[in-house]
Each structure stands twice: as C-alpha cells, then as structure tokens.
Amino acid sequence: MSLLAFGQTGQVAKELARLGVQTVGRAEADLSDPQACADFIAATDANAIINAAAYTAVDRAETEEALAQTVNGDAPGAIALACAAKGIPLVHISTDYVFNGAGQAPFAPDHPTAPLGVYGRTKLAGEDAVRASGAAHAILRTSWVFSAHGANFVKTMLRLGAERDALTVVADQIGGPTSARAIAMACVTMAKALQSDHSKSGTYHFSGAPDVSWAEFARVIFKEAGLSVLVTDIPSSDYPTPAKRPLNSRLDCAATSAGFGIARPDWRAGLRDVLAEIQKP
C-alpha cells in the first residue's frame, strides 16, 4: 500500500516520515493553495492520503482568519474531493478545539461542536468539507500533541525548567497528552483499514491516557527529566491568551478502539521515549 501525507515540518508529519510514509512539503503542494494540493493528488499513484498539515498557530489565527480558513478549511476540502475522484481514502487530523470545553465528561465524536476561536472554527470547516466530499475518510481529532521536534509543551517545559526552579502552570485545563508518534501510527492503521473497508468512514477521537492538567503534565515532565522545579497551579484566567482555550479537552476514544483496534496510548511511556530522544548525546 502506498501512503502519501501532506506535511513535512510538523510533529506528526515527521513521525509519519519515520514510518516510511512519503511526505509532501510546501514546495510541492502548499495548503495555502488548495488547488495545488488537489492537482498533486490527481497526479500521484498513492492509494491513501493522510493530511497532517495545518495552520496551528492558535493565537495568531485570531488575526489571520483568512489564511487559517484557507489552510484548515478550504485545502482539506480540495484534498478530499481529489481523493473522492480517485476513489482513495483520506485520514484527516483535527482537534479537540472544535468543542467549547464545557463540563467534565469526555467529548464523544458526535457531541455538538462549538469552537471558541478562529483555529477551532477553521478546523471544523475542514471537517465539514471532508464529510461533504464523498471521499472515504477518517477524521481523527486529537489533543495536546508532543514530540522531540517542533514547538510543544514538553520542549517548552524542558527549556524553562533548565532556567528556573519554580514555574506557574495552568491547572484548570484537562486533557490527554498525545505523542506525535502514536498519532502517526494510528493514522497509518486507519488509512490501511479504510483502503479495504470504506464503511469505516467517520469521525474518531484519539488522545493519550490518563487525562491530566497542564500542571500535572509539567510535574511528570520534570520528574522524568530529572529537573527539580516547583510547579504552582494557576487558573487559566491568570494566563490570558488572545485565543480562548477549552477547559475540558477530554476525548472519548471508544469508537477508535472498536473500529480500528487502536487503544489510547499511555502518554507517560511516550514521554519517556521523547525525553530519551531529546537527551540522546
């Protein structure tokens, strides 16, 4: 089976490349030019597509909505239509930001969406376009992505922890940290399953377990990295950002397990692997 993934510099795209998936960067097909992405698919001999590219600057999106909409909304639609035309499946990565973060229960895939900001709205627009395309698809919502590369919470904590002996970290946002490698592996599994069974098309959730707060996540990062840093819990209101974050990012992943045999990964094991890679001499 030949897999092709949009994205080269992102965390999941890098892990897909490590798994042997061919990745496509901006020089070949930029998501800011949806037609170029569709044309690339039309010319490829791949028999399944993974879209691991997106506009992910959550705060900057508040002032760049047009660009975020093109990359997160219009391009996935064009990619999906091109997949439909060739009869090949698409795995499209989305986000917990399509929900409003209310309550404490995990969000099921069919829970009503209500994004809090531009990033979530544009990602939801991409989901809707994929569903409307007629392509066999799996929309995979995930959360709190981390890896040894790119910009992410783990690397930020390691940098700050090396500079300071005490930090304040938000404690009222709860979710499942998810390693980029686990997401990449899930995408490959789903793409292969969809290639042989289009009836598995739908929206799925995938996040690491157990659910924790950012502050709790930080404490485990410091402990595993051997850094002595005092973490003090603060509410989100003490750390204002241009874009509002969902307080509840818990995701119900039961359908992913039932449909594809993919269990929620233990993020603590994923963290240890990431730390080993980062600290490797």
Results as ranks from 00 to 15, higher is better:
residue 126 G to H: 04
residue 82 A to T: 11
residue 55 Y to M: 09
residue 23 T to H: 06
residue 165 D to P: 02
residue 103 G to S: 11
residue 69 Q to A: 10
residue 262 I to C: 04
residue 105 A to K: 14
residue 226 G to N: 11
residue 33 D to H: 13
residue 191 A to V: 10
residue 47 N to W: 01
residue 157 M to K: 02
residue 100 N to A: 15
residue 166 A to F: 08
residue 42 A to R: 13
residue 89 P to M: 01
residue 73 G to W: 00
residue 8 Q to M: 14
residue 94 S to Y: 07
residue 166 A to W: 07
residue 205 H to Y: 11
residue 178 T to E: 12
residue 63 T to V: 15
residue 112 P to Y: 06
residue 46 A to C: 11
residue 40 F to Q: 07
residue 211 D to C: 08
residue 109 P to D: 06
residue 59 D to M: 09
residue 47 N to S: 15
residue 266 D to T: 10
residue 28 E to I: 00
residue 104 Q to D: 14
residue 109 P to T: 12
residue 50 I to W: 01
residue 26 R to Y: 08
residue 190 M to I: 15
residue 51 N to P: 04
residue 41 I to V: 15
residue 281 P to L: 11
residue 68 A to I: 10
residue 279 Q to L: 14
residue 47 N to Y: 00
residue 161 G to Q: 03
residue 14 K to I: 09
residue 91 V to G: 06
residue 78 A to T: 09
residue 23 T to V: 12
residue 156 T to I: 03
residue 258 A to M: 09
residue 221 I to Q: 02
residue 273 D to V: 08
residue 117 G to L: 00
residue 7 G to I: 06
residue 278 I to A: 11
residue 273 D to H: 10
residue 99 F to M: 01
residue 121 R to S: 09
residue 248 N to V: 13
residue 254 A to V: 11
residue 193 A to M: 06
residue 84 A to V: 12
residue 92 H to S: 07
residue 138 A to D: 05
residue 245 R to N: 03
residue 23 T to L: 06
residue 236 S to F: 00
residue 192 K to S: 12
residue 278 I to F: 13
residue 49 I to T: 04
residue 208 G to D: 03
residue 151 A to E: 12
residue 236 S to E: 08
